Every structure is written in C-alpha cells, then in structure tokens.
Amino acid sequence: MGGLLALSRGIDRTSKFIGRSVAWLILVAVLVSAGNAIIRKVFNASSNMWLELQWYLYGAAFLGAAAYTLCEKEHIRIDILYGQWSRRAQLRIDLLGHLLLLMPFVTLMNWMLWPWILRSLHSGEYSTNSGGLILWPGKMMLGVGFSLLAFQGISEIIKTLAVMRGDLPDDGYQSSEERVSAEAANRIEAASSETTE
C-alpha cells in the first residue's frame, strides 16, 4: 500500500499545482473580456478571436481545476443522507461512487475524446467563425481535463481504501474546509490549555 500511497501523493501534488496555476486564467479571461468590451464600445471594432479566447481561458480554468476540486473534496455532493451515516458507510459510498460512476465516465470520455482531438490537431482545424482561432487547443483542454480527473479518481480510490484499511489517518482525508476548521479548533484548544496552566 505504501507505493500506491506514494503514487496518490504524487497525483495530488500535480492536481494541486495545476489547479492553483489555472486559477489565474480566470483573471486573464476577465481582462480579455473587459478589453474586448471596451474596444467594441469605444472603437466600434471587435473580433471573434477575442470571444473564442475567453472561452478557451474559461475552459482551461474549469477543466484544469476539476481534478484539484476533487482532491480538495470541494466537489458537489448531496449530503442529506450522507452526513447522517457512519464514517465507514461514507467511505464505502465514496469508494463505490468513484469506482462505479466517476471512473467509467472519465474512461469513456477519454476513449471518445482523444481520437477527436488528434484528428483536429493533425488537420489544423480552424473555427468556422470569421477571425476565429484554431480549434485543437480548446479540444485538447477537454482531453487533458478528463485525463487529470481520471488520475485524481485513481488517487481518491487509493486514499479511500487506505483509510478503510487503517493505513491512512482519517483526518488526512478531509476537505480543505474541514481541515481549516479542525486546525482552528486545535489552535483554540491549545490556547485555552495554555491559559489554564
């Protein structure tokens, strides 16, 4: 299990690095959007290139951050029943969800996307819009995003199994919000114990 946990840590580090890096693309997209709007209103000029560049930037940010979101346990879950079950039941649900829903979905997406992406790359496919951009980078983002999500799914399966086996402490398997809350509670407890001494 040690080798699998090392693989999981490597995947997590990669997902976090990429997720934090692509977050800046939102700012770039906003600046491009604002610049395009100003040019259109002030100079009565515009280009489809700027609109498509916005789509590319937003797409890269969201697709690049999908694996990071899963790694940080910030993905959307319906906790109506989940939160009432034991931690063991929650881990089983997470494992089944990753194995039966996430992994088949990302596998199918990757299997279908990559030939489509490669055809676009080899043909040098351009947008049909006047002044549009080449299309393969946008399509490539889809493939890369789903590939990263597939690797992060593998990491989540490894971590879930490790927690269930007792090879990984459960406190290391919390969302970033839960970790911050736990750290804050620990600091408050430490501060209160210092004042009582």
Rank of each mutant, 00 (worst) to 15 (best):
L63Q: 01
T196W: 05
K73P: 01
T14Y: 13
L168Y: 12
V22P: 04
K73F: 11
A182N: 09
V106A: 01
L96T: 11
L70D: 00
L168F: 14
R87N: 06
D12C: 06
S86K: 10
A6E: 15
L63H: 01
F43R: 07
L142H: 13
P169A: 13
T195F: 05
L100H: 09
A34D: 05
E178W: 08
K16G: 12
R13Y: 08
I93E: 04
R77T: 12
R20G: 14
K73V: 01
S8Q: 10
R87G: 09
P169E: 04
L53H: 12
G10Y: 11
M164A: 12
L148V: 01
K41L: 05
Q84I: 07
W111K: 05
H75N: 13
L133S: 06
L4V: 00
G2N: 14
I38Y: 09
T160C: 14
R92T: 06
H122K: 08
S175I: 00
S192D: 09
P137C: 10
W55I: 14
P115W: 01
R88P: 05
L118I: 04
M109Q: 07
W114D: 04
V180F: 07
I93F: 06
P115Y: 03
N110S: 11
G2E: 14
W116Q: 00
I39K: 04
R119D: 11
E189F: 10
H75K: 11
L113S: 07
R13N: 13
Q152Y: 13
A67I: 04
I78S: 11
E74T: 00
V22D: 03
Q152F: 12
M141D: 07
G59W: 01
I78L: 14
L161I: 15
W114H: 05
T196H: 08
L51M: 15
M140W: 09
E189M: 01
K41C: 07
I38K: 10
S147H: 07
E156D: 15
F43L: 07
G35Q: 08
S193Q: 10
A150S: 11
P169I: 05
P115N: 02
I117R: 01
G138Y: 03
I78P: 02
Q90W: 06
N36K: 15
S15Q: 10
W55H: 10
